[in-house]
Design a protein around this nucleic acid. Structure first.
Lengths: 99, 99
DNA sequence: CAAGTCCGTAAGGTTAAGCTTACCGTTAGT
DNA sequence: ACTAACGGTAAGCTTAACCTTACGGACTTG
């Protein structure tokens, strides 16, 4: 989750949405250097959001559907709870808890 | 999205999932000071993830379902694209890779 | 083997994020 | 009106995130 907090990393992630891309190509399309892209990719990889595969001398990165599923489930749960909270607040004006 | 990048902010957000909470109570449950909580709440509010309402001398914060829906939709779209990408990659492999 | 790509890692500098203390406005109760 | 509780804001410091340059390893080709 922290991984998507950085704008550059989100840009990389969104670029990867279209399909596998090599590190150099990513760097050429972004306003940062190639090593910076490598570091961002490492963060994304450790977060389980992307996977990498050697392709000759290059290295292709792509989105990891499993990692995405985790985030989707996270927000889905949150969303359901928020709705339940709203419904309960609408039905009951009761406020418990503190005095 | 940047709003949920910070661990403390995520803790606040998850605490708010159970229902409306006042600023002081949040601070008492977290390892940070009350002003820090206020600042985090401001970020969350500007991101549209929470809403606030005066309640006497206190101020109750709660999760904003609309903001959550935006995030959910974002990942949903990503999820669909990732699946499409996977399917296409599988088809390409079927046709025999190129060299 | 030699040369050329492509990429990851290390080291260092710079900026911004997060936290704390201090101060002030607002609301409620006595 | 006075006091106390609650919370937002300002100023300042500290740490960590991010970027760049420099270097070295892995792989392919002539």
């Amino acid at each position: 989750m922290n991984a998507l907090g950085d704008p550059t990393r989100r840009a990389i992630f969104e670029r990867l949405r279209a399909g596998p891309v090599a590190v150099g190509e990513l760097a050429s399309e972004l306003p940062v250097s190639r090593p910076a892209v490598s570091q961002h990719l490492r963060v994304l990889k450790e977060a389980g959001l992307v996977t990498d595969a050697k392709a000759g001398t290059r290295r292709l990165y792509r989105v990891n559907p499993q990692g995405l599923e985790g985030l989707r489930a996270y927000f889905e749960r949150f969303w359901d709870d928020a709705l339940a909270q709203l419904k309960q607040a609408a039905e009951n004006d009761d406020q418990g808890g503190k005095r």
